[in-house]
Design a binder for these strands. Structure first.
Lengths: 248, 248
DNA sequence: ATTCCGCCTTGATGTGCATCAAATACTGGT
DNA sequence: ACCAGTATTTGATGCACATCAAGGCGGAAT
């Protein structure tokens, strides 16, 4: 008993365990038994800190691991051969990145930290080994990948058929909803990305993003002070996303 | 020896086996041993024929199985609450559809046959059972999902940053490349979808798709007679996709 | 062969967003 | 606290694509 106490008081020991991680409701351990979660700790090879502005991995690098975000905020982006690039997503604590690398053993996008971040490194072959033994983990890995596919369907709908205001409204609602699931405010958020990065994600130019923010402010839907955004009228944003084109 | 011969001559016996399927280089059995492929036959519950214009599954339906396309051609599309819809992909023989359903146990898109089609129905729990035993299958399932994620990244790049001509060029090149991998011509193809469906996929209106085809014809890049397309200058299409914006 | 209907093409016009440009606000480093 | 560089806002203008409209083609049913 005394031994256990001493071990637990060692901050190193506490920190590396999935069972003690405050993201366990959002991250890989979702839906597993306490016993199974303990086994997940073997899956996490180590932690890695990523400085703001630097890459966790880059297009072309060998794929070895998936990464669970512990803290911080990332963007992922792909580049075409002629140098254009496209932000494909923004990821926050509890989310998994690196799935793009599985198919060809090499990453096909960049993952860049938008603020200082820390990730759990999970070697993919260990994930595969363990998910052969723990059915719940196998299912969970499948769900994570399927969720990413479904999310991207939503982005395709946005990029293919929505207008600027609808895109930005959908973007803001999605961000606050995910932040809220992590215990943050439903109505207030700090953007970790530039207008240009938002624009890239939404298929708009940065000026259009800026103008659309200004429009929302005029309409009393949000307050914007640089990257600090307060949503005053969530309903109005929802209406923009869902009912914009009903008049046709 | 005589017995084997007789069995093989029974057309039923031949047809249901993955080991005899002429898509085995493209479909689930990819990279498995002969012995493992035999076991996959247990995975395929049955076949299902889908008439042109009807759905294999629809948004909201319970998810049970993945489907391997044996013959025919599908589109998948998502719908927003206000009725717009977006084609998220076109699928052909050897490709797997239904991955969207895993995450919530319900499908989130429609899969509609664009010509009479036949699919192998693979109950997902059997896939999970079997992929716990056959490492190569587990890896393959992961790769299929990762491939879909990467494909969608490409579509996001297309929708977010390309102009009409580039989008259509990329679309045509992608289609012929996949058809070529199935033994069809590198330069000739028959479109199974309408201009409107192409437009939905590419984030364009059908008139723009039509005009862009006409432009390609004027430029001597393709010949178009309704849905029959012959590519005269693949290089020109590639240049459109890759170098369009270099002048900037 | 004729008719119908969905699909496609083409033209005229409009508009939402991009582009170009310039001023201002903010951030990080020293 | 100051400075340099970056991010943001806002205005003026242009263009790519959407929208509206009309006519033509072709396949399926009779």
């Amino acid at each position: 008993m005394a031994d256990v106490k001493i071990q637990n008081m060692n901050p190193q020991t506490i920190k590396v365990a999935c069972s003690n991680c405050n993201l366990r409701e959002l991250c890989m351990p979702l839906g597993l038994s306490a016993e199974e979660i303990d086994r997940l700790d073997d899956m996490v090879a180590n932690r890695r800190k990523i400085k703001r502005g630097t890459a966790l991995f880059r297009n072309g690098e060998k794929f070895n691991s998936l990464y669970a975000i512990r803290t911080g905020f990332f963007k992922t982006c792909v580049a075409s051969e002629d140098g254009r690039d496209q932000v494909t997503g923004f990821q926050m604590a509890g989310e998994i990145i690196g799935l793009d690398g599985i198919v060809n053993d090499h990453h096909t996008c960049d993952a860049v930290a938008l603020e200082d971040a820390e990730v759990c490194v999970m070697p993919f072959d260990r994930i595969e080994d363990l998910s052969r033994e723990i059915n719940g983990l196998q299912r969970h890995v499948h769900k994570i990948m399927s969720r990413e596919i479904v999310r991207e369907h939503g982005v395709m709908l946005l990029l293919g058929s929505m207008r600027a205001e609808e895109r930005l409204a959908a973007f803001l609602l999605n961000l606050v909803q995910r932040l809220h699931a992590r215990g943050f405010s439903q109505s207030e958020l700090i953007l970790r990305m530039t207008r240009e990065e938002i624009g890239s994600y939404l298929g708009l130019k940065l000026e259009t993003v800026s103008r659309t923010f200004s429009k929302f402010v005029e309409d009393g839907i949000v307050e914007v002070k640089q990257r600090h955004v307060r949503i005053l009228d969530t309903e109005a944003l929802s209406r923009l996303v869902n009912h914009q084109n009903e008049c046709h």
